[in-house]
Amino acid sequence: MAQARRSRAHMIEETRAKLIATARSAFAEHGFANTSMDDFTAAVGLTRGALHHHFGNKEGLLIAVIEEIETEVNEHLRRVSAAAPNRWEGFRQRCRTYLQLALEPEIRRIILQDARAVFGDVPAAAQSLGVAELQAALDQLLADGVIAALPTPVMARMIYGAVTEASCWIAEPDAELNERLHQALDALERLLDGLRVTGEHP
């Protein structure tokens, strides 16, 4: 009986993973609005009922794809931070890298265009993860005396909002991506410099 339950759980997880992986590829190539769920489910050998069972609807599937990508993005940003020579540079590179990721086709299409068009913003769960990571970094910088005393919960939200809005601006359809990225990175440096204790150096 236990083996049967494990096998069923494995099948459920396998079906869910297959739907997310295939949707991720389709949304990145065609966009959310242009992806047909009937064609999509048939392509992976599943029924539309399987989609509704696991995600409720097409929007629910998009949320699952967004959360998977955002988790990967945060893992990448952690590695970037960890590779930096000090905590301030790690924080700075984390923010800069987030902006640079706006040039990645999959992130540009799914996170910065489709999520905004369908939901008005990135889903709350993905936002919470990004804000929490920023707040943890700010708390450590504050404890180290690198940044001036400030309420880190609100500052983390403000920085998250700033880099997210800038990323969406960079990723707008028909935008000059590299020029917008350059402008956004310059503005980010000015913003982050304002956090530091006067005379503090990495």
Results as ranks from 00 to 15, higher is better:
Ala102Asp: 01
Ala124Gly: 12
Leu99Trp: 03
Ala137Asp: 08
Ile111Cys: 13
Ala124Tyr: 12
Arg96Trp: 08
Tyr98Thr: 07
Val131Thr: 12
Arg109His: 11
Ile111Ser: 14
Arg109Ala: 13
Gly130Thr: 01
Ala115Thr: 07
Ala117Met: 09
Arg116Trp: 14
Ala117Gln: 12
Gly130Trp: 04
Asp121Ser: 14
Leu129Ser: 10
Arg96Phe: 06
Pro105Cys: 11
Ile110Cys: 05
Glu133Ser: 08
Asp121Ala: 07
Gln135Phe: 03
Arg109Ser: 10
Glu133Cys: 06
Tyr98Glu: 09
Ala102Cys: 13
Gln127Pro: 01
Cys95Gly: 02
Val131Ile: 15
Ala132Arg: 05
Ile107Gln: 10
Leu129Ala: 09
Ala124Lys: 11
Glu106Ser: 13
Gln100Tyr: 03
Ala124Glu: 14
Ala137Arg: 01
Asp114Phe: 04
Gly130Asn: 07
Ala115His: 00
Ala126Asp: 03
Leu134Ser: 04
Ala117Tyr: 09
Leu99Phe: 01
Arg116Asp: 14
Pro123Asn: 02
Arg96Lys: 13
Gly120Tyr: 08
Ile111Lys: 10
Ala125Phe: 10
Leu103Pro: 05
Thr97Gly: 08
Arg108Cys: 07
Ala132Val: 00
Ala117Leu: 07
Ile110Ala: 07
Ala132Asp: 02
Leu101Val: 06
Ala136Met: 11
Gly130Glu: 08
Leu129Lys: 10
Leu134Trp: 00
Pro123Met: 02
Gln127His: 12
Arg116Thr: 15
Ala102Leu: 03
Glu133Met: 13
Phe119Glu: 13
Gly120Asp: 03
Ala115Arg: 04
Ile107Met: 10
Ile110Pro: 03
Glu133Tyr: 08
Ala137Leu: 02
Ala137Thr: 02
Pro123Asp: 07
Val131Asp: 01
Cys95Lys: 04
Gln113Gly: 03
Ala132Phe: 03
Ala137Gly: 03
Glu133Gln: 13
Tyr98Trp: 11
Gln135Asn: 10
Ala132Pro: 00
Gln135Arg: 15
Ile111Tyr: 04
Val118Pro: 01
Gln135Asp: 10
Ala132Tyr: 00
Leu103Trp: 03
Ile111Asn: 04
Leu134Arg: 04
Arg108Met: 10
Leu99Ile: 11
Arg109Trp: 00
Ile110Val: 15
Arg116Pro: 09
Ala136Ser: 11
Arg109Gln: 15
Thr97Ala: 11
Val118Arg: 05
Cys95Tyr: 03
Ala136Ile: 08
Phe119Tyr: 06
Ala125Arg: 11
Val131His: 07
Gln100Leu: 14
Ala136Val: 07
Ala124Ile: 10
Leu134Met: 06
Pro105Arg: 05
Glu106Met: 14
Gln127Phe: 12
Tyr98Pro: 00
Leu112Lys: 04
Arg116Phe: 13
Glu133Arg: 12
Phe119Ala: 05
Arg96Thr: 04
Val131Leu: 07
Ala136Tyr: 05
Gln100Asn: 12
Arg108Tyr: 07
Gln100Glu: 15
Asp114Trp: 11
Leu99Cys: 06
Gln127Leu: 12
Ser128Leu: 13
Glu106Trp: 04
Ala136Lys: 12
Gln113Lys: 07
Ala126Ile: 00
Tyr98Ser: 06
Gly130Ala: 09
Leu101Trp: 05
Arg116Lys: 15
Glu133Trp: 04
Ile107Glu: 05
